[in-house]
Design a protein around this nucleic acid. Structure first.
Length: 116
DNA sequence: TGAAGGGCCGGTC
DNA sequence: CGACCGGCCCTTC
């Protein structure tokens, strides 16, 4: 079996395979404690992409509807929810957050208290 | 190839 | 507070 991999001259990978940015985001997301929230910007930074808040939002939007990841704990830097009003989705987010003990002050969540 | 538009953000007024 | 702006980064025509 000589030379069975003619293209195997690719550089060997480091022992600990670096996870992709997407995986880093999912990982960070999974760590947000119940009763806490994080902003899109902070989530992006944790995923290794400072300044890519919009990207974080895009990724969250693509999560399967039945994901177990706590997508509802991600809010914008104003402390409000970014989903479209009057949709099932935003109602679900609000309900889940309240279930976790978060108290809204009007339409916003005090980041000084609940920010992770 | 490029322009438009998103689950955004920080500064400024 | 609210509105606007420039910047950010990616996806979708």
């Amino acid at each position: 079996m000589i030379n069975s991999h003619p293209h195997s001259h690719k550089k060997s990978e480091p022992p600990t395979e670096p996870i992709s940015k997407e995986e880093a985001l999912y990982l960070a997301l999974s760590k947000i404690p119940k009763g806490k929230v994080i902003t899109y910007g902070d989530l992006a930074t944790l995923a290794g992409r400072p300044g890519a808040a919009r990207w974080a939002g895009t990724m969250l939007k693509r999560l399967p509807k039945d994901t177990t990841l706590p997508w509802h704990r991600v809010i914008n830097s104003h402390g409000t929810l970014s989903l479209r009003e009057y949709t099932h989705r935003i109602e679900l987010q609000r309900a889940r957050l309240q279930e976790e003990g978060i108290l809204f002050k009007g339409d916003k969540i005090p980041l000084s208290i609940y920010r992770w």
